[in-house]
Simulated scan of single mutants.
Amino acid sequence: MTQEQFSKYSFLLDRTARRVKQYAQRKFKLEDFDLTVDQWLVMKNLSENELLSQTELAQMVFKDQPTLTRIIDILSKKGYVERIPHPQDRRSFQLVLTETGKLKVKELKPKVAFIREKAWENLNERDFEEFKRILNTIYKNLE
């Protein structure tokens, strides 16, 4: 592949990722979800995992520590996330959804799924499999 082709494909990948996030953020705002896309990703990951450290969560959502700290602070103020002292390390905390946070995730999951389905319209099963294969290859190349 030439450098020019590589640049074109990288641009397409970046452009598409940005468009997906912008579309989702617009829908979150229009439907008054009371969350940003990044806040949703944090809550979704907390709902799928018990008692995560901030470091573990940062790796899952691909955020640096200062950015994740700001997101957690906002979610805590909204009453969706709670910091619990770590039983083995007094200096750190584990993160958990509150009951309100769990209800919010349950309420929004089908709505978020519907928003995501828009991006996949007009693609068939073979398209999905090829897309998944390509993305996994790119991901593994960068390990």
Rank of each mutant, 00 (worst) to 15 (best):
N49G: 04
Q88F: 12
Y9H: 09
E48M: 06
K8N: 02
D34T: 06
L51V: 02
E56L: 11
K29H: 11
L57C: 08
T16W: 05
P110A: 01
Q39T: 01
E48Y: 03
G101R: 00
W120L: 15
N136I: 06
T55V: 15
Q94C: 09
Y9P: 01
I71M: 06
L108K: 00
K140G: 06
Q94G: 03
W120S: 08
D73C: 03
M1S: 13
D64L: 03
S53R: 14
E121W: 13
N136F: 09
Y23W: 07
D89L: 07
R15N: 13
M60P: 05
V96W: 06
R83S: 08
L13A: 13
F131P: 01
L135F: 14
R83L: 04
K78A: 01
F114E: 15
Y23L: 08
K44G: 00
D32K: 11
R126A: 12
K132N: 07
M60S: 10
Y139L: 12
F28H: 02
K44S: 10
L108I: 05
K44D: 09
S92D: 08
K29Q: 12
Y23S: 13
P85D: 03
F62R: 08
N124W: 05
N141Q: 12
E107Q: 14
Y9V: 11
Q25V: 02
K104G: 02
L68D: 02
E82G: 01
L75C: 07
T137S: 09
F62E: 15
L108N: 00
R90P: 11
E129S: 10
L123P: 03
Q54D: 04
W40D: 04
L142Y: 15
S7I: 05
D127Y: 04
D89A: 12
Q54F: 03
P110Q: 01
L41N: 14
V42I: 13
R116Y: 13
K29M: 05
T36G: 12
I84M: 12
V42R: 01
Q39M: 04
Q5F: 06
K27C: 00
E129N: 10
L68K: 03
S53F: 03
Q65K: 15
V96M: 11
A17R: 13
N49T: 07
Y23C: 02
M43A: 06
G79C: 06
V112N: 02
I84Y: 08
S92W: 10
E48H: 05
E107F: 14
A24G: 06
Q94L: 15
L103Y: 04
K132V: 10
T67E: 10
L12P: 01
S7C: 05
Q39R: 05
Q39F: 01
F11Q: 11
E117Y: 04
V81F: 00
H86P: 07
E125R: 15
L13R: 12
K63E: 15
F62V: 09
F62A: 14
R133S: 12
E107W: 14
G101V: 01
T69K: 14
